[in-house]
């Protein structure tokens, strides 16, 4: 083989993998990178989308949203909504997974519970919002029950009162999201070797000690992975909050997604909406990088 032929062959071998990747790279570029870059570009323009000849705005729109107290309130609400949701998704998911993995519970009852516990996962966000709006409305079932058992003295406007609205939407989101943790942790529990528990029994370990020293460490990779993913997804929740409260009353349930939506489709300020969307993107990106690093480290 001549030298020229050899180098040609080498080049072909080097290029071939990229040719195979080209279709997927093109799709990713068109469907993900292009919209992302476009939104970033909009955030630096005046009258983005609305004018054919938008001028360069620099960091003006970022300055505007950082000066807006509603943005900071939205950021705080987003963090509260997300952290509480992830913590309770994990706790409830763990309790239910342990229950479903427990051999002492009758298998038939376990199967029934398995179906019941997974039900919230089957509903779309819109249905969940409608269900909770009906349940928590001032004349709804929840108030009626709480009044009958004497927990509250008068009707509570769960979604319409600034004091309770954020807790109410967070509660609805917790209810809707725990099955992801439950299913993942149940799969993890079923993968823990029985030998560990038998050895612990021989050593005289109590149930809580087995939980702390065997179950949780064994499930830790799943807990961290799912928690990070849940954090990223919950940060972007929009339909549940939009349909239940619209970000109100006043601004008590305004989160970054509703704040951005209102800027775009109520104020038609697509430049500022893009700046807000870029902020959400950066926060999500930070979490995603953290997730990727964790996955690599494993």
């Amino acid at each position: 083989m001549t030298r020229q032929k050899r180098s040609h062959h080498k080049l072909k071998r080097a290029v071939a993998p990229y040719l195979y990747l080209t279709p997927s790279l093109l799709i990713i570029g068109l469907l993900m990178l292009l919209p992302m870059v476009t939104v970033i570009a909009y955030s630096f323009q005046n009258s983005a989308v609305l004018r054919r000849d938008p001028s360069f705005a620099g960091l003006k729109h970022y300055q505007a949203i950082f000066d807006d107290p509603v943005f900071w309130a939205s950021l705080w609400h987003t963090l509260y909504f997300t952290c509480m949701s992830v913590i309770f998704h994990m706790t409830i998911g763990m309790v239910f997974a342990l229950m479903l993995n427990n051999d002492r519970i009758n298998p038939t009852l376990r199967n029934i519970l398995r179906v019941l516990y997974i039900l919230p996962w089957l509903f779309t966000a819109v249905i969940i919002a409608v269900i909770w709006r009906l349940l928590l409305e001032p004349n709804g079932v929840v108030n009626s029950i709480l009044m009958q058992i004497g927990i509250i003295g008068s009707k509570v406007e769960w979604f319409s009162s600034p004091e309770t609205a954020l807790h109410a939407v967070t509660f609805a989101n917790i209810w809707a999201g725990y099955p992801l943790f439950m299913v993942s942790l149940l799969a993890g529990l079923q993968g823990i070797p029985k030998d560990f528990y038998e050895a612990a029994d021989i050593d005289g370990a109590k149930a809580y000690q087995k939980l702390i020293f065997i179950t949780i460490p064994q499930l830790m990779p799943i807990i961290i992975s799912i928690s990070l993913l849940d954090f990223i997804w919950t940060m972007q929740v929009f339909p549940l909050i939009w349909i239940t409260t619209g970000g109100g009353p006043i601004y008590s349930t305004e989160v970054l997604s509703t704040y951005t939506y209102k800027l775009a489709f109520s104020s038609y300020n697509l430049s500022q909406a893009s700046a807000s969307a870029v902020v959400i993107l950066l926060i999500s990106l930070g979490l995603t990088l953290f997730y990727i690093r964790y996955q690599k480290a494993r």
Binding site: P138, E157, S160, A165, T244, T245
Partner: peptide
């Protein structure tokens, strides 16, 4: 009728329809 801050036009009509 309570729930002013989150009430929508459709809910308003429903309450009227149901004698509330």
């Amino acid at each position: 009728s309570p729930g002013i801050a989150t009430k929508t036009e459709q809910e308003k009509v429903e309450e009227f329809v149901n004698d509330r």
